[in-house]
Each structure stands twice: as C-alpha cells, then as structure tokens.
Amino acid sequence: MFELLGIPPQALFGQLLLGLINGSFYAILSLGLAVIFGLLNIINFTHGAQYMMGAFVAWMCLNYLGVNYWAALVLAPVIVGFTGVIIERLFLSRIAHLDHLYGLLLTFGLALIIQGLFRNSYGSSGLPYQIPDALRGGYNLGFMFLPTYRAWVVVASLIVCLATWFMIEKTKLGAYLRAATENATLTQAFGINVPLLVTLTYGFGVALAAFAGVLAAPIYSVNPNMGADLIIVVFAVVVIGGMGSIMGAIVTGFSLGLVEGLTKVFYPEASATVIFIIMVLVLLVKPAGLFGRAA
C-alpha cells in the first residue's frame, strides 16, 4: 500500500469522504439560506432546527407509520416545508417591512421553541435510524472502502443542488424568483403574485433543509440538537461564499467540507475551527465573500 505523507490512504480517503458528506450538508443548507435571504431578506436562524425536523419526521414516519426511507425522503421535506409555509404566513410576513435584524431574532426564537419541544419529547441522547437495505454494504475500491450509503448521500446532494441551480437559473419560475429578488415591487406590477412567491420560496428553502436532515439521519443519530451547532458553521460558510450566487453557495459548501476533512487528517485539533479560521482570512482579504457582490 502506498502512503501519502505518512498518512494511510484509508484514513485519508475516509476522512475526505466524510468531509464531502459534511460539505453536501453545508451546500444544501447554505443554498436554502441564500434562496430565502435573496427574496425575504431574512437570515433564517430556524434552518438548523428545520434540518433536525427533517431527520425527526423521517424517524417518526418509520417508527409510527412504518413508512420507509425512500418515501420519507419525499414526505419529510414536503411536511417540514409545509410547516415553513405556515411560519412564513403567520410570523415572517408580519415583520417583512421591518429591519432585517428582527427576522433574525424571530427565527432564533422559533429555533429555540422547536429545539426545546423536541428535547422535551425525545431527550437529547439521540435515536438510531437504520440505513435502508438497498444502500447497505459498500465497495472495495482498492485504496479505500466506500460505504454505499455515504456515496449515495454525496450523489443525492449533488443532484438536488444542481436541480435547484437549474430551476432558479434556467426556468421561467426561477426567472420570476430572480426578478422578485431584484425588485419585488416592479415584479408585482407585471402581474406576478409576489407574496405567494415569497411564501413558496420560504417553504422550498425549508424543504431543502429537511431533505438534508433525512439524508443525515442514518449517518448521525437523530438528535434534537443536531442542527444547533451545524447552523453556526453554515453561517460561516455563507459569510465565506457570499449569498449572491447559487453556484457559489454549492461550490463553497462542498469545498469547505473537503477542507474540514483534510484538517481532520493532518491536524485534528483544528478541525472544529478551521472553517471559522477560513472565514477570518476571507474577511481580511475579500470582505464581500468569495462569490459575493460588493455591498
């Protein structure tokens, strides 16, 4: 077996794969944040809690209703996205005219409520979620062992990210969305139902988070706190990438996951902080973010 800088290849590629998986979650979550921010001008602090809800809904589907993973992969985002629609109609639409900071505070409060409620009902220890039968096992690639489920997570995330990009950049609906992001009043004057578009966009962003949650359920245990720390890392990812570009969010998410994985191999002590350190460097060199437009 060959060795790279004294690191056995199994460890290196294993961590890179794990980094890629974390990167997929960063990409999907920061994508959702960027889409929501573009139209609603709100940083959705509830995003982490909604990611957690996705995992929980999948777990509930399996344990209470006997609905399997594949159905949950569609059902959970729809259900959680629907709760997002309710949140937007009930709360966010009322503060749309206020300073953006109130949106942050409101969604922070909602995150506390949701996480607290789940903690009360299910404790903090985490619930196991089995990998579906079709995705058990793995392939021996010679230089590493590739678990099927982990490969599936990366592929599924990539597909969802690219589909979102395609929808926003290349379809008519996406054109409406981009127009409303640019100038909501003028778009409405052209006869497009902007309030409906806003509601659906929030629901869609939330559904993305829930989708990531379902993907994460078999890898990490289903835990009420699983989104709380993740969302802060995703904020750093968003600061690094800037929220101006959809493709930027995807590329930044995946590459930061890889960097984190590499750090775990070469300097594990820094793996929890490396993304924040990169954020500091980006702020020093290019304050608007790698893909951001200058304010």
Binding site: F37, I43, H100, L101, L104, D229, I232, V233, F235, A236, V238, V239, E269, A272, T273, F276, I277, M279, V280, L283, L284, P287, A288, A295
Partner: peptide
C-alpha cells in the same frame, strides 16, 4: 474583523467568531 461587513453579516460573523472561542475553550 466583524465591522468589515454590515447588518445581517455582522451578526453571523460575530456568532461564528464566538463559536470559535467556544471550541477553543472546549479543546
């Protein structure tokens, strides 16, 4: 570092920097 960005980004940056301090304290 944080005053290089405004508004919503400022809040996110301060939060991320504080999380760095948290991990530092943990480790």
């Amino acid at each position: 570092l944080a005053i290089r960005r405004q508004g919503i980004y400022f809040a996110m940056i301060t939060l991320a920097l504080a999380q760095m301090v948290f991990f530092f304290s943990l480790q």
